[in-house]
Amino acid sequence: MRRIPILVTLLLVAACSQESERTYTVDELIADEALLSRTISDCRNNPGELRNTVNCHNAEAADGKLRLQNMRKALGG
């Protein structure tokens, strides 16, 4: 009988725990420029905590790809 309250408590704690942040791919960030802008802004405003996260790396890669695409378009290529 002692196990039931312990299990219920563990389930409640697990349900209330902080949800992990979704990881976005480079292609998803390129497709949603508002999300890309927000992610880059968050990463640059808190580099100590976020600099080495997957989302920040993917956002920088997506930003680089978009810049290259825009330069090619501007040059007529």
Rank of each mutant, 00 (worst) to 15 (best):
R3M: 08
C16D: 06
M1G: 15
E60P: 01
R3W: 14
I4Y: 07
M71E: 11
L36M: 01
A59I: 06
T53P: 03
G64R: 14
E60V: 11
A14I: 07
T9P: 01
L29I: 01
L10T: 07
D63A: 12
Q69V: 01
D32H: 02
A61V: 11
D27L: 01
E60G: 09
L75Q: 06
R67F: 02
L7S: 11
D63Y: 13
I6H: 00
N55H: 14
C16G: 12
D27Q: 15
P47T: 07
R72N: 06
R22N: 06
G48S: 13
M71K: 13
G48K: 15
T53Q: 10
I6C: 02
L7F: 10
Q18E: 10
V26S: 02
C56W: 02
E28A: 07
Q18P: 04
M71H: 08
L35A: 13
E49P: 01
L35D: 11
V26P: 07
Q69C: 00
T39N: 09
A59H: 10
A59T: 05
N70Q: 14
I4N: 03
A31G: 07
E28G: 04
L29P: 04
N70K: 15
A14P: 03
R22V: 05
T25A: 07
N46S: 10
E60A: 12
I6T: 07
I30A: 06
I4E: 05
G77V: 02
E33I: 03
R67M: 09
S20L: 09
S37A: 02
H57T: 10
R51F: 12
D27R: 03
S41H: 13
R2D: 05
I6K: 00
E19I: 10
V54K: 14
Y24F: 15
K73C: 00
N46H: 12
R22P: 05
L50P: 11
G77E: 00
S17I: 10
E28T: 06
K73I: 00
M71A: 13
A34H: 12
E33L: 02
Y24L: 08
E28M: 09
E21H: 10
E19T: 13
R22Y: 11
R44P: 06
A31R: 15
D63C: 03
T53F: 00
R2I: 09
T9M: 15
T23W: 10
A31M: 09
A61I: 14
P47I: 09
R44W: 11
R2S: 06
S37E: 04
E21R: 15
A59D: 03
N46P: 03
T9I: 12
M1C: 10
K65P: 02
D27I: 00
L10A: 14
V13M: 12
T23C: 08
I40G: 06
G76W: 00
G48R: 15
D63V: 04
N55S: 04
A74R: 14
C43Q: 11
L36S: 03
D63H: 12
L11P: 05
S41A: 09
C43V: 05
A34P: 02
Y24D: 04
Q18L: 04
A61F: 04
Q69N: 06
H57S: 14
G77P: 00
R38D: 05
T9L: 12
T53S: 15
M71F: 12
P47D: 04
Q18H: 07
V8H: 03
S17G: 03
L7Y: 05
R72Q: 06
L11T: 09
E28F: 06
S37H: 11
I4A: 12
T25L: 10
D42A: 14
V26Y: 13
T39S: 09
A62R: 01
